[in-house]
Amino acid sequence: MKEQNTQVVDCSGKYVVQYSLPMVPGPDKVRWNATVNGVNVDFFIDSNAILLDVLRDQGGSLGTKRGCDMGTCGCCSVMINGTPKLSCLVLAQEARSSSITTVEGLSSGHYLHPIQQTFAECGGSQCGFCTPGFLVVSAALLERNPSPTKAEIKTAIEGNLCRCTGYQQIVESISKASEILVSGKGIDDSTSSKSDPHPGFSGGLS
């Protein structure tokens, strides 16, 4: 595996090392498969890889965010077999053969999940960095419990930090999404004077 490195003189006259494999004693590559957002994937990954890295670097889920790397902020939450987990604290190998849902897997095509609609409409998302984590956690909550109380909502999102909203509008967004799910009625689009309503992007369920 180890390749000889080659040295080349760069324009400033210094030696630089050109492109070769690392000599660092690295992990073995192992074969890994899972269902990510409904698609079967099959990769070679580092045997010690963290799920977050696999999802971001190989799984194409850049929506899953890295905020702290130690399970304190909740930005990297994903659903593993329906249960929200912090992907920065999960070894990819632990999640082998599981079904993983990231924020990208919440909508169906252009039809947004109610929780996505309400986060946009009720101010649940400001800078948006923590949003994927909150969406995954609250979508998991609503799947288990379509009409949670305020206390249940707070308990569900207690592991997620948001620095912009002060949580109040997030809690409102989740309550509102629960209303949509229970009643089956869509919400008004706050940018409603649209010239041409986007089919599926807002208002109405899929």
Partner: peptide, 27 residues
């Protein structure tokens, strides 16, 4: 039209679908 109306952020759909590209998402 819009002034004084509660309006969701124009880029909010990018954020809620995970497609908003932050610093580390530029690859």
């Amino acid at each position: 039209q819009v002034i004084g109306k509660s309006t969701s952020l124009v880029d909010s759909n990018w954020k809620v679908t995970g497609q908003a590209k932050y610093g580390d998402d530029i690859r």
